[in-house]
Amino acid sequence: MMLEAQNIHGYYGKSHVLQGVTLSVRDGETVTLLGRNGAGKSTTLKSIAGVVTPQQGSVKFKGIEVAKMQPHKIAARGICFVPEHRGIFKLLSVEENLRLGARKQSPWQLTDIYRIFPRLKERRTNGGGQLSGGEQQMLAIGRALMNHPRLLMLDEPVEGLAPVIVEEIVTQLKLIREAGVAILLVEQNLEVCTQLADRHYIIEQGRIVYEASNDVFIADDSVKDRYLGVGVV
């Protein structure tokens, strides 16, 4: 098993946000974490990445406990987190942003990133602040890949992007998945989720309330309506 999170409890101050989250990601698997706003999706990713320290529970990555490790040490083990705000350095060029995440042992080097994301190659001398939202998302994913991820965690990667850009990013994520990188995805766009994922979890009020394979999830309209409020389409 690549990732095993067991009974994670997380707090923001006195607010008990995660109330015993348990989930797993196998080698090479793409898993989504779904739920309404405020359910605890982003906090779960942050807890796995060490940005929020779990107050209780276990996070094992490739069999090693990482729950109390500092974020940079967790990242060095191969958990790469692309947050919702993307974390682009706006005054640095695209190429400088990419090189910040580079590791010599990574199978993903600059030429690989430019092959997957040709837009970044076209804009490699532009400042991060000059990029569109979609291009910034590509840059954030590309930088994470250069950091040699075994598990890539993405928080709302296509939120607010034009449909044509969403389609482009989904295509690129499929290439990353095919290369064997495990992905844990938080995303509101269900069409994107069902195109990419092997399994789905739903979180509600800090607890996992549903788990299913992609085929079962696609067929279960009542679950989408009950927990995600999307209705039957």
Rank of each mutant, 00 (worst) to 15 (best):
G127K: 14
V25A: 12
F217V: 15
L100D: 07
G206C: 10
S132L: 08
P54R: 01
A219N: 14
N189C: 02
H85A: 13
G78I: 13
L228Y: 11
K60L: 14
V223C: 05
G57P: 01
K68W: 01
K90S: 14
V52A: 03
S222H: 11
L152W: 02
Q109C: 06
I113K: 09
L228T: 06
I141V: 15
G229W: 12
I113A: 10
T194A: 07
G63M: 09
Y201M: 04
G129P: 05
Q136M: 10
E95R: 15
V186D: 04
G101Y: 04
L139T: 08
L185W: 09
V230D: 09
K121T: 02
H9K: 00
S93R: 11
T43N: 06
I183R: 08
R177S: 10
N147E: 03
F89D: 07
H200G: 10
V216M: 11
R115H: 14
V94H: 06
A5S: 06
P157H: 11
I8Q: 01
A182K: 12
L98V: 10
E204V: 12
E122Y: 05
I165Y: 00
T171D: 11
E211R: 11
Q205V: 12
H85T: 14
I183N: 01
H148N: 15
E122W: 07
K60I: 01
V233G: 06
Q70G: 11
G10C: 08
R77V: 02
E159M: 11
I8N: 01
G35C: 12
Q105E: 15
R124F: 01
D112W: 06
K62E: 07
G57Y: 07
R77K: 15
V25L: 03
V82T: 10
G142R: 07
V31L: 12
K62G: 05
V166D: 03
Y227C: 09
I169V: 08
